[in-house]
């Protein structure tokens, strides 16, 4: 009887040990593979809103509709250092709309009225074309629909507006819902230190 219990005990211990080894081994394997903290990031070179060579298509707004947080954690960001400060910004104006009496397009592009336009530097009050303009995206209103990104990209604009994951809003889903929906696999997990790197936009495809 006691013999049997000890044998059973030994068996159980062996099984437990084997399981612990298996679990620990796979955990070790994964830890060896791991590369620190990784976060979701929009790869601007893949995102069709900012990818070069994609023209005459509607802006993809899956980032707006798929994100699990109420107002998408993906928002448009203007990289000011790349912005041309154009007088007529195709991301701000709907450049195909009729021209009003001031010589500007009458419609704005953003459906959420999230972009502000203001002249900067030494302002010439007489000739508005003689000024630089800053385009400021209102973080609170933007929902990442990508219309402005599509309009700003080369060759029409300079591609200074890109979609970015707001890491303070992102809940770091196991599998980002947008990435699941994204047709170009443009939402990827990258090491945190690469998340803010300025993405060099690749050329066609």
């Amino acid at each position: 009887m006691s013999d049997q219990t000890t044998r059973r005990g030994a068996l159980a211990r062996a099984a437990r040990g084997a399981a612990a080894l298996a679990l620990g081994g796979s955990a070790f394997y994964l830890v060896r593979k791991a590369d620190g903290q990784i976060v979701w990031n929009v790869d601007s070179a893949r995102c069709i809103n900012s990818r070069l060579g994609v023209t005459n298509v509607e802006a993809c707004n899956l980032c707006t509709t798929e994100c699990v947080v109420p107002l998408s954690a993906v928002r448009a960001v203007n990289e000011y250092s790349k912005c041309g400060r154009c007088y007529i910004c195709p991301a701000y104006f709907n450049i195909t709309s009729a021209v009003d009496e001031k010589g500007l397009p009458s419609e704005k592009l953003c459906p959420r009225d999230a972009i502000e336009r203001k002249p900067i530097g030494d302002i010439d009050p007489d000739d508005p074309a003689n000024n630089f303009y800053e385009y400021i995206i209102d973080e609170v209103k933007c929902d990442g629909c990508g219309k402005c990104v599509m309009a700003c990209k080369e060759p029409l604009g300079l591609g200074s507006i890109v979609l970015r994951v707001r890491h303070s809003l992102c809940v770091d889903c196991n599998r980002c819902a947008i990435s699941t929906a994204c047709p170009k696999d443009a939402i990827l997990q990258v090491p945190i230190e690469k998340a803010f790197d300025h993405v060099q936009l690749g050329s066609h495809d």
Binding site: I120, F132, E139, S168
Partner: peptide, 23 residues
Amino acid sequence: QAAPQEEGIGGSYKTPAVQKPQP
């Protein structure tokens, strides 16, 4: 530089920092 720089813009303009919220 296709994008105008601070000295080109003048008026003691400073390029605003782009908001980069950390996780």
